[in-house]
Amino acid sequence: MSRAELPATSTIAITSGRGRSRQARLEMRWGFLMVAPMLIGFSIFFLIALGSSLILGFTEWKMVESPHWIGFQNYRDVLRDPDFRTAMVNTFAIAIPHVILRITIGLSLAIALNSKIRFRTFYRVVFFLPVVTMPVAIGTIWKWLYDPGFGPINGFLGRVGLPQPEWLTDRWWAVVAVVIVLLWSGVGYDMIIFLAGLQAIPRDYYDAAALDGASGWQQFRDITLPLLTPTTFFLTVIGIIYSLQVFDLVYVMTRIGEVNQLPTVVYFIYDEGFRNFRMGYAISVAWVLLIIILIFTLIQFRLQKRWVNY
């Protein structure tokens, strides 16, 4: 199996300078050419906006009138803002268990439904259903399930003599409740990506391992898991990027009237920017969030050498 020993191309340092052959120059030219469409579009439709937001983060800006420069004031305020801190704690409390469990469950489902099990198409559709269900439907049904007065979950817990928490009103139970819903609506998504990743593993490997008498578990541990690491890495990075930005579902689930019981960072940004007319401040919060996510992402790219097989 020569695969695992192949150098991870992405981590090779790009050697510059004199010794570069004609071929390397050609490869470079092709490289730029092939990323060009993406890069141009990205620059026009994203980078310009990001650049202006960097400037706007240093202004007081009501949106409806011109911004004016206030230097680092926004950033000083962010670090002192107790509401920001609360939002940050809520966000991490949701994101960490969410990412870990989502990948674990998504992988288990993908493996179960990649085998020649009966009705697998049916199961795949079923587990994917929540991904295509409207957020409004998701919010409404889960609110009903969690309803402390009339809902079936507490009805069941009461009957078997367990405590009946006020799921969505108590802050920490709300975190648990929200993570469950996020998992429920997201594992099908990860399942799809894992299913695709599983196809990249040559069947010969399993045949060879079976000939050597490896058990199912051994095959999983020695072939599936390591060869799936590029996909797992992808889902971890993306999972963290996205779950640190959770917003609508949490709001729909936990709000009472207009009052949000479990504000997350992006909710905080939205609220400050649009409802409170403090867009300059909201943008500075978004930059703090960007830096936090970027640090997490860079750490993961650093660590991938230790566990990701290419």
Partner: peptide, 30 residues
């Protein structure tokens, strides 16, 4: 683009790639 990022070598490749990912890290609203 994915082919170039995964198979070809060119200067700035990894920096550009991470910059692209930054596109996912900012909420649309701002």
């Amino acid at each position: 683009a994915a082919f170039a990022f995964s198979q070809l070598r060119f200067p700035g490749r990894d920096v550009i790639f991470v910059a692209l990912l930054a596109g996912l890290m900012v909420p649309d609203q701002v």
